[in-house]
């Protein structure tokens, strides 16, 4: 395992629960991160992004008035988005397959199931550092390539092809793959 120094990275933590924000920031500080700011919902976070050049966003799903999914879509596709490419880690207590697929299709890079741990959070950060993914614009989808591993021998149908105005299918997921995404 390669050890990374996170000191120079800027983290934006978005959660409507102040205790969760405090917990994530405490973990990041313990991992050596120095620049962490937080926001209580997606709308505040979007404002923060205008003047804070976040390198990684750690975002909760359930928030009012703008939840984690809408925030992710705004970051990815908003015409006034300060950084459509910024990696987003979605914190979620929702582990059902349809929810995970929905978040992935909004353009999140990584998932971290609650309750969180320091090891879990660092493994997602490491994954983002070690496996930068190209971005894809397909239909109305814009975000990191949802195919984590490209099979050169894949002979199935081209699922990215889709009518204009729709989100083309990415990989279909089994429940086991969903668990793997959530648990690293």
């Amino acid at each position: 395992m390669v050890d990374y120094n996170l000191e120079r990275l800027n983290f934006l933590i978005v959660d409507d629960n102040k205790h969760m924000r405090g917990l994530v920031i405490s973990i990041l500080h313990a991992l050596g991160a120095k620049n962490c700011i937080d926001a209580g919902d997606g709308a505040d976070a979007f404002k923060e992004l205008r003047h804070f050049p976040a390198d990684i966003i750690i975002c909760d799903w359930d928030m009012d008035p703008l939840d984690g999914l809408d925030f992710t879509r705004m970051v990815r596709t908003g015409s006034d988005s300060p950084n459509p490419f910024v990696p987003i880690i979605m914190l979620t207590g929702h582990t059902e397959m349809n929810r995970v697929v929905e978040a992935r299709d909004a353009g999140v890079h990584e998932f971290l199931a609650k309750p969180i741990s320091a090891k879990g959070l660092y493994s997602r950060i490491r994954s983002i550092i070690e496996r930068p993914r190209p971005f894809v614009r397909a239909g109305i989808y814009f975000g990191p390539d949802r195919r984590r591993a490209i099979s050169r021998t894949y002979m199935g149908k081209e699922r990215r092809k889709a009518p204009e105005g729709s989100i083309p299918d990415a990989e279909e997921l089994t429940q086991a793959e969903v668990e793997a995404l959530l648990n690293g």
Partner: peptide, 12 residues
């Protein structure tokens, strides 16, 4: 298929 692959800036 109208799919554009874009190399994201690697700031990390």
């Amino acid at each position: 298929n109208g799919v554009r692959v874009i190399k994201a800036p690697d700031t990390l």
